[in-house]
């Protein structure tokens, strides 16, 4: 039975109930946990001990790469490969290079934000065991779910199930892998 189980999913009606339960789950020492909600809940990050993502640093790096590639491209074009004398102005005319540099900064930073987020989230991922629970369809509508995975070191079928029942959920579901 244990072998074939992905974990337990507990359903809650309100965000407050789920956040309180998540705090208890964390205090009980479970680490392989997750929560599902129809909208972002800031309190759950703390309750489950979710660390701050490295995404902002990636986006900053993306922006820097964009800025430098904009500068490099224009420098190569106008100074190295095809220097063109326009009214005696310098080949390296930085002020007029700024708009393309700026736009490329934004473009690459935005790409990093979107695709970095999807990459770190492991999306697109069409299949996930939680979708096996029919009630889970409500996680994108109005219900809140808390998950403890079976490969958590503290996981024990009966004990964990009893523990989850004690959190006052609407129901606890077995999640097939």
């Amino acid at each position: 039975m244990d072998k074939k189980l992905f974990g337990f999913l507990a359903e809650f009606d309100t965000p407050t109930e789920m956040v309180d339960a998540a705090t208890k789950v964390r205090d009980a020492g479970y680490t392989k946990t997750d929560a599902f909600s129809p909208f972002p809940l800031h309190e759950i990050d703390e309750a489950l001990g979710i660390k701050r993502s490295i995404l902002p640093y990636m986006v900053f790096a993306g922006g820097i790469v964009g800025l430098l590639s904009g500068l490099g491209l224009q420098y190569y074009v106008h100074v190295i490969d095809y220097p063109l004398n326009v009214g005696g102005r310098p080949f390296f005319s930085l002020p007029s290079f700024i708009p393309p540099m700026f736009e490329l900064t934004i473009l690459l930073a935005a790409f990093t934000a979107v695709f970095g987020m999807l990459f770190l989230n492991g999306l697109p991922q069409p299949y996930h065991p939680v979708f096996n629970v029919p009630r889970f369809a409500l996680a994108t509508r109005e219900k809140f779910f808390l998950l403890i995975e079976s490969d958590d070191p503290k996981f024990d079928y009966n004990e964990t199930r009893n523990f989850m029942e004690s959190l006052n959920p609407q129901e606890v579901f077995d999640v097939e892998p």
Binding site: F36, L41, I44, L55, V59, L123
Partner: peptide, 23 residues
């Protein structure tokens, strides 16, 4: 894209969304 509303996903999602707004 298989969105399931996971708390970890929402966490990065909100960061990405805010950064996009800032950009």
């Amino acid at each position: 894209w298989g969105w399931r509303g996971s708390a970890r996903h929402w966490h990065r999602y909100e960061i990405a969304y805010l950064l996009l707004a800032g950009l």
